[in-house]
Deep mutational scan, measured.
Amino acid sequence: MPVRRGHVAPQNTFLDTIIRKFEGQSRKFIIANARVENCAVIYCNDGFCELCGYSRAEVMQRPCTCDFLHGPRTQRRAAAQIAQALLGAEERKVEIAFYRKDGSCFLCLVDVVPVKNEDGAVIMFILNFEVVMEKDMVGSPAHDTNHRGPPTSWLAPGRAKTFRLKLPALLALTARESSVRSGGAGGAGAPGAVVVDVDLTPAAPSSESLALDEVTAMDNHVAGLGPAEERRALVGPGSPPRSAPGQLPSPRAHSLNPDASGSSCSLARTRSRESCASVRRASSADDIEAMRAGVLPPPPRHASTGAMHPLRSGLLNSTSDSDLVRYRTISKIPQITLNFVDLKGDPFLASPTSDREIIAPKIKERTHNVTEKVTQVLSLGADVLPEYKLQAPRIHRWTILHYSPFKAVWDWLILLLVIYTAVFTPYSAAFLLKETEEGPPATECGYACQPLAVVDLIVDIMFIVDILINFRTTYVNANEEVVSHPGRIAVHYFKGWFLIDMVAAIPFDLLI
């Protein structure tokens, strides 16, 4: 008679799926529990143990900040960024110097990925580790590398530091407007667009060049630039800015003055950032001319202004700041037409079709709590990747769950009947059967004279019903998954307890 339990259901295979997918890609990662103190490590794979030199037993239950890997060259700011990422709910990448158990130093890129439950609360953290440099290539500990984003994938490793954006290309926007319009339909740009040429040739750093990471940081200074100062900065030398009595002219307006920039070969870094931020506020060169004239017309309804409409929906549905990093990277690809469009465009503009998908598509409701890094690593669709929660398995109709209350009560009843059979069957065979043979035949009273025979008949009927119930009862397979398919249940029961239950259900007393 089957006594099969499996009270692990309803099970959740999400954690096993993450481990299996990460292991298949030869990654070095740990999984931490966000619900406990210090976000203790609950799993670390073999790749991480080989990377740091510690065994799994030495890593388990330690804080996922990996303070046991810190050393003299470990930056405090990087460690603080990892700790801050564990307090938030967004994906974050941090470069930090770690030390192995043998004392060797290596520069590592740590990717902190939160995993949320159905309520939107962070319950786990996945920390992925990628070695960037070994100890002989690690720089000085005073050099802070965590304020910069990861290198873009479309640049060669040897040319990542030679990417320079020439400031004269930004200063000569109005001069290039006529050349853009003359391109017409034969050019790649839309009317009114501004073409910015980027020099990728390796050259020595000069005062006129600005690194790509500095251009990325310009967006942080746009908020500090007032509207009046932006307007004066875009007017140009024809209309000098008016300053109040006793007030000095704005240095932001002076930063885009061609006369002032041409007199000296070098520009201050602050002026460069502010000038680029001011130019980015204009949607095209037409807006710059309109600002000089004193009238700013409404933005025209053409394809170039609607190019950012799908980007707005993608940004609203993005799951991490990696989408913004990807957008900034692609927006700086050289030799393309940049349409400086305000994100607050007309909502009635139709979304044009684009061959290049900048932001990841909208994630469906079932995966809105899973970050983009987890979705990318697992390579699963929205119909396959579940949320991290207890999910009731989908069972067929008329199927009994093996952990249901009805099955528990039924098993206790069958257990009592088995005990009765084990006690009274030998007793009936030894004593009652002998008395029946010696006594007179009682054929007239039937079952009324033999109450134990009636009980034995009921017990046999219950055993037959138990066999039928076992054909529709779920079970737990070797992978700790609840199986509810009727065919698989029948095959599993035939290979197991079916023969024993059938022999126990045969009414031998009635056959004798």
Rank of each mutant, 00 (worst) to 15 (best):
A307M: 12
E365M: 07
V370Q: 05
S206E: 15
A211F: 13
V279Q: 09
L200M: 06
R92T: 15
D102S: 06
A253V: 14
R76S: 09
P2Y: 15
P2V: 06
E37M: 09
S304L: 12
E289D: 07
K101I: 01
S206R: 07
V3K: 07
T65G: 03
M133N: 06
I42E: 01
E130R: 06
K28V: 12
K362P: 06
A204Y: 01
F29W: 01
G158M: 12
P141W: 06
P310R: 07
L267Y: 14
G24P: 03
P205K: 04
R148E: 15
E118F: 11
S272Y: 04
G139H: 15
S264G: 14
A9G: 15
E91K: 08
A303R: 06
S275N: 14
E50N: 12
R242C: 14
L267V: 07
A260C: 13
R76N: 15
I363H: 15
A172L: 01
K362W: 08
F68R: 01
V122S: 11
Q81C: 06
E208L: 06
V198E: 03
N12R: 14
V59H: 01
E289L: 07
Q25N: 14
P151T: 08
L200S: 14
A190T: 14
A223D: 09
A121I: 07
C49R: 03
I82V: 11
S104W: 01
R164C: 06
M60L: 14
L256A: 07
S318R: 12
A228V: 12
Y43W: 05
N38P: 14
H254S: 13
D102C: 12
D136F: 15
P334W: 01
S313D: 14
I19H: 01
L210F: 11
A34R: 14
D136K: 15
R328A: 11
T74V: 01
P205H: 05
L109M: 06
M133P: 15
D136S: 14
S275A: 07
K344D: 13
A277N: 13
D144Y: 06
N117P: 07
N128A: 15
R20M: 07
G24Y: 07
V59I: 11
S322C: 07
R62Y: 09
P298N: 01
T17G: 13
V36D: 04
C64E: 01
C66M: 15
N339H: 01
H254T: 14
E274L: 14
